[in-house]
Protein backbone atom coordinates (compact mmCIF):
# COMPACT_ATOMS: atom_id res chain seq x y z
CA UNK A 1 0.00 0.00 0.00
CA UNK A 2 2.85 2.34 0.85
CA UNK A 3 4.54 1.67 -2.50
CA UNK A 4 1.21 2.37 -4.19
CA UNK A 5 0.94 5.79 -2.57
CA UNK A 6 4.51 6.70 -3.41
CA UNK A 7 3.96 5.59 -7.03
CA UNK A 8 0.69 7.51 -7.05
CA UNK A 9 2.53 10.61 -5.89
CA UNK A 10 5.13 10.19 -8.67
CA UNK A 11 2.35 9.72 -11.24
CA UNK A 12 0.13 12.54 -9.97
CA UNK A 13 0.82 14.95 -12.85
CA UNK A 14 0.26 12.29 -15.52
CA UNK A 15 -2.98 11.16 -13.87
CA UNK A 16 -4.20 14.72 -13.48
CA UNK A 17 -3.44 15.45 -17.12
CA UNK A 18 -5.32 12.33 -18.21
CA UNK A 19 -8.25 13.12 -15.95
CA UNK A 20 -8.53 16.67 -17.31
CA UNK A 21 -8.37 15.31 -20.88
CA UNK A 22 -11.17 12.85 -20.13
CA UNK A 23 -13.37 15.55 -18.62
CA UNK A 24 -12.58 17.93 -21.47
CA UNK A 25 -13.44 15.36 -24.15
CA UNK A 26 -16.65 14.35 -22.37
CA UNK A 27 -17.91 17.86 -21.62
CA UNK A 28 -17.21 19.25 -25.09
CA UNK A 29 -18.77 16.28 -26.86
CA UNK A 30 -21.83 16.29 -24.60
CA UNK A 31 -22.43 20.03 -25.10
CA UNK A 32 -21.91 20.16 -28.87
CA UNK A 33 -23.53 16.75 -29.31
CA UNK A 34 -26.60 17.91 -27.41
CA UNK A 35 -26.97 21.01 -29.58
CA UNK A 36 -26.59 18.85 -32.67
CA UNK A 37 -29.00 16.25 -31.30
CA UNK A 38 -31.65 18.85 -30.52
CA UNK A 39 -31.53 20.05 -34.11
CA UNK A 40 -31.58 16.49 -35.46
CA UNK A 41 -34.50 15.55 -33.22
CA UNK A 42 -36.59 18.53 -34.36
CA UNK A 43 -35.78 17.81 -38.01
CA UNK A 44 -36.70 14.15 -37.54
CA UNK A 45 -40.21 15.16 -36.47
CA UNK A 46 -40.93 18.39 -38.34
CA UNK A 47 -38.33 18.62 -41.14
CA UNK A 48 -39.09 18.39 -44.87
CA UNK A 49 -38.91 14.86 -46.29
CA UNK A 50 -35.45 14.98 -47.93
CA UNK A 51 -33.69 16.51 -44.89
CA UNK A 52 -35.59 14.18 -42.64
CA UNK A 53 -34.42 11.13 -44.60
CA UNK A 54 -30.81 12.38 -44.49
CA UNK A 55 -30.99 12.85 -40.72
CA UNK A 56 -32.59 9.43 -40.33
CA UNK A 57 -29.72 7.86 -42.30
CA UNK A 58 -27.18 9.72 -40.13
CA UNK A 59 -28.85 8.62 -36.90
CA UNK A 60 -29.17 5.01 -38.02
CA UNK A 61 -25.56 4.75 -39.21
CA UNK A 62 -24.18 6.33 -36.02
CA UNK A 63 -26.34 4.25 -33.71
CA UNK A 64 -25.67 1.05 -35.61
CA UNK A 65 -21.88 1.42 -35.54
CA UNK A 66 -19.59 0.71 -32.57
CA UNK A 67 -18.01 3.87 -31.11
CA UNK A 68 -14.57 2.34 -31.63
CA UNK A 69 -15.24 2.05 -35.36
CA UNK A 70 -16.47 5.67 -35.42
CA UNK A 71 -13.30 6.82 -33.68
CA UNK A 72 -11.01 4.93 -36.05
CA UNK A 73 -13.01 6.17 -39.05
CA UNK A 74 -12.85 9.82 -38.01
CA UNK A 75 -9.12 9.40 -37.37
CA UNK A 76 -8.25 7.84 -40.73
CA UNK A 77 -10.88 8.86 -43.29
CA UNK A 78 -10.30 12.66 -43.19
CA UNK A 79 -6.55 12.18 -43.69
CA UNK A 80 -7.21 10.18 -46.86
CA UNK A 81 -8.90 13.26 -48.38
CA UNK A 82 -6.08 15.49 -47.11
CA UNK A 83 -7.67 16.90 -43.96
CA UNK A 84 -5.26 16.31 -41.08
CA UNK A 85 -7.06 16.26 -37.75
CA UNK A 86 -5.06 15.75 -34.58
CA UNK A 87 -5.91 12.61 -32.61
CA UNK A 88 -7.86 14.67 -30.07
CA UNK A 89 -9.84 16.52 -32.76
CA UNK A 90 -10.66 13.27 -34.55
CA UNK A 91 -11.74 11.68 -31.29
CA UNK A 92 -13.94 14.65 -30.39
CA UNK A 93 -15.53 14.54 -33.84
CA UNK A 94 -16.44 10.88 -33.38
CA UNK A 95 -17.86 11.42 -29.88
CA UNK A 96 -19.86 14.47 -31.02
CA UNK A 97 -21.36 12.58 -33.97
CA UNK A 98 -22.14 9.62 -31.72
CA UNK A 99 -23.70 11.83 -29.05
CA UNK A 100 -25.66 13.87 -31.61
CA UNK A 101 -27.32 10.77 -33.05
CA UNK A 102 -28.34 9.41 -29.66
CA UNK A 103 -29.66 12.74 -28.39
CA UNK A 104 -31.45 13.23 -31.72
CA UNK A 105 -33.34 10.00 -31.25
CA UNK A 106 -34.17 10.86 -27.64
CA UNK A 107 -35.51 14.30 -28.65
CA UNK A 108 -37.56 12.77 -31.47
CA UNK A 109 -39.20 10.32 -29.09
CA UNK A 110 -39.90 13.04 -26.53
CA UNK A 111 -41.45 15.38 -29.10
CA UNK A 112 -43.64 12.66 -30.57
CA UNK A 113 -44.93 11.65 -27.15
CA UNK A 114 -46.52 15.09 -26.67
CA UNK A 115 -50.23 14.92 -27.60
CA UNK A 116 -50.99 16.69 -30.94
CA UNK A 117 -53.68 18.74 -29.14
CA UNK A 118 -50.90 20.87 -27.63
CA UNK A 119 -49.64 22.00 -31.02
CA UNK A 120 -53.19 22.55 -32.29
CA UNK A 121 -54.08 24.66 -29.28
CA UNK A 122 -50.89 26.72 -29.60
CA UNK A 123 -51.56 27.29 -33.28
CA UNK A 124 -55.12 28.34 -32.62
CA UNK A 125 -53.99 31.16 -30.36
CA UNK A 126 -51.70 32.37 -33.16
CA UNK A 127 -48.21 31.18 -32.09
CA UNK A 128 -45.64 30.73 -34.87
CA UNK A 129 -43.78 27.40 -35.20
CA UNK A 130 -40.57 28.62 -33.46
CA UNK A 131 -42.73 29.97 -30.64
CA UNK A 132 -44.61 26.68 -30.35
CA UNK A 133 -41.29 24.86 -30.09
CA UNK A 134 -39.76 27.13 -27.47
CA UNK A 135 -42.81 27.79 -25.30
CA UNK A 136 -44.95 24.68 -25.68
CA UNK A 137 -43.14 21.61 -26.98
CA UNK A 138 -39.52 21.74 -25.78
CA UNK A 139 -40.33 22.56 -22.12
CA UNK A 140 -42.61 19.54 -22.00
CA UNK A 141 -40.14 17.34 -23.91
CA UNK A 142 -37.38 18.30 -21.47
CA UNK A 143 -38.93 16.21 -18.71
CA UNK A 144 -38.81 12.98 -20.69
CA UNK A 145 -35.43 13.86 -22.26
CA UNK A 146 -33.55 14.39 -18.98
CA UNK A 147 -33.19 10.85 -17.61
CA UNK A 148 -31.96 9.39 -20.92
CA UNK A 149 -29.80 12.46 -21.54
CA UNK A 150 -27.99 11.91 -18.23
CA UNK A 151 -27.55 8.28 -19.22
CA UNK A 152 -26.01 9.30 -22.55
CA UNK A 153 -23.64 11.64 -20.70
CA UNK A 154 -22.40 8.79 -18.51
CA UNK A 155 -22.04 6.59 -21.62
CA UNK A 156 -19.87 9.25 -23.24
CA UNK A 157 -17.53 9.48 -20.27
CA UNK A 158 -17.02 5.74 -20.60
CA UNK A 159 -16.74 5.89 -24.40
CA UNK A 160 -13.96 8.48 -24.03
CA UNK A 161 -11.67 5.65 -22.83
CA UNK A 162 -11.69 4.38 -26.43
CA UNK A 163 -9.81 7.51 -27.51
CA UNK A 164 -6.72 5.85 -26.02
CA UNK A 165 -6.68 3.64 -29.12
CA UNK A 166 -5.78 6.57 -31.39
CA UNK A 167 -3.25 7.90 -28.89
CA UNK A 168 -5.23 10.60 -27.06
CA UNK A 169 -3.64 10.91 -23.62
CA UNK A 170 -6.82 10.57 -21.59
CA UNK A 171 -7.09 8.85 -18.22
CA UNK A 172 -6.96 5.27 -19.50
CA UNK A 173 -3.90 5.76 -21.73
CA UNK A 174 -2.12 7.65 -18.94
CA UNK A 175 -2.92 4.76 -16.60
CA UNK A 176 -1.58 2.26 -19.15
CA UNK A 177 1.60 4.30 -19.42
CA UNK A 178 2.05 4.29 -15.64
CA UNK A 179 1.40 0.55 -15.42
CA UNK A 180 3.88 0.00 -18.27
CA UNK A 181 6.53 1.72 -16.18
CA UNK A 182 5.94 0.36 -12.68
CA UNK A 183 4.07 -2.95 -13.34
CA UNK A 184 1.43 -2.16 -10.66
CA UNK A 185 -1.35 -3.32 -12.94
CA UNK A 186 -4.19 -4.00 -10.56
CA UNK A 187 -3.63 -1.00 -8.27
CA UNK A 188 -3.64 1.63 -10.98
CA UNK A 189 -6.48 0.17 -13.06
CA UNK A 190 -8.60 0.02 -9.90
CA UNK A 191 -7.70 3.62 -9.17
CA UNK A 192 -8.67 4.70 -12.70
CA UNK A 193 -11.92 2.75 -12.39
CA UNK A 194 -12.66 4.57 -9.14
CA UNK A 195 -12.14 7.95 -10.83
CA UNK A 196 -14.55 7.05 -13.65
CA UNK A 197 -17.06 5.85 -11.10
CA UNK A 198 -16.83 9.13 -9.19
CA UNK A 199 -17.34 11.20 -12.33
CA UNK A 200 -20.38 9.19 -13.36
CA UNK A 201 -21.87 9.26 -9.84
CA UNK A 202 -21.44 13.03 -9.99
CA UNK A 203 -23.25 13.20 -13.32
CA UNK A 204 -26.03 11.01 -11.99
CA UNK A 205 -26.52 13.19 -8.88
CA UNK A 206 -26.50 16.38 -10.93
CA UNK A 207 -29.05 14.81 -13.25
CA UNK A 208 -31.31 13.81 -10.38
CA UNK A 209 -31.16 17.33 -8.96
CA UNK A 210 -32.09 18.73 -12.36
CA UNK A 211 -34.97 16.26 -12.70
CA UNK A 212 -36.35 17.33 -9.33
CA UNK A 213 -36.08 20.94 -10.44
CA UNK A 214 -38.18 20.46 -13.58
CA UNK A 215 -40.63 17.91 -12.13
CA UNK A 216 -44.34 18.72 -12.26
CA UNK A 217 -45.52 19.62 -8.79
Amino acid sequence: METFFSELWIARDALMEGFVRTIEASVVSILIGTALGLLIGIVLVYGPLVVRLLCRAYVDVMRGTPVLVLILASFYIPSVVGLHLSAFQAGLLALILFCGAHIGEIVRGALQSIPPGQTEAARSIGLTFPQILTYVLLPQALRSILPTWINTGAELVKASTLLSVIGVGELLLKTQEIVGRNFMTLDFYLFAGLLYLLVNLGIEQAGKALERRVAVR
Partner: peptide, 14 residues
Protein backbone atom coordinates in the same frame (compact mmCIF):
# COMPACT_ATOMS: atom_id res chain seq x y z
CA UNK B 1 4.02 3.88 -28.42
CA UNK B 2 4.09 4.97 -24.80
CA UNK B 3 3.56 1.83 -22.74
CA UNK B 4 6.50 -0.56 -23.32
CA UNK B 5 9.79 -0.05 -21.53
CA UNK B 6 12.62 -0.14 -22.47
CA UNK B 7 11.41 0.69 -25.99
CA UNK B 8 8.97 3.56 -25.62
CA UNK B 9 7.39 4.62 -22.36
CA UNK B 10 6.76 7.69 -20.21
CA UNK B 11 9.38 8.21 -17.54
CA UNK B 12 8.53 9.57 -14.11
CA UNK B 13 8.54 13.11 -15.46
CA UNK B 14 6.02 12.14 -18.14
Amino acid sequence: GSTNPPWHFRDEKG
